[in-house]
């Protein structure tokens, strides 16, 4: 049930508007229903603002949410 380790933005060349720096792929822990997963996601290296691309939210993430809910 492990998430694939790395997810990049679906498209575009994104930067954080508050810090004005490009995003970096960084390890983040996502949490749901007493479970945690390490995922590498686009993130602002300064403020930590993290992006969840649409394909991840509606794909793997929705799948894992359903799995955990049905446990």
């Amino acid at each position: 049930m492990a998430l694939d380790p790395e997810f990049k933005p679906d498209h575009g060349d994104w930067y954080c508007t508050s810090c004005d720096v490009p995003l970096q792929q960084q390890k983040v822990q996502v949490l749901y229903m007493n479970s945690a997963f390490d995922v590498i996601l686009p993130r602002c290296p300064e403020c930590g603002l993290t992006m969840i691309p649409e394909s991840l939210a509606n794909g793997k993430m929705a799948e894992v949410e359903a799995l955990l809910e049905d446990k």
């Binding site: 749901y32 969840i52 939210a57 993430m61 929705a62 949410e65």
Partner: peptide
């Protein structure tokens, strides 16, 4: 476009991202 999810992702939450990070 818009999308949504239920999982909690520290750093992707507004307005309470700090709170979630601290909890973690």
């Amino acid at each position: 476009r818009a999308w949504c999810h239920r999982m909690v992702v520290p750093g992707a939450i507004q307005p309470s991202s700090e709170v979630i990070l601290e909890k973690r």
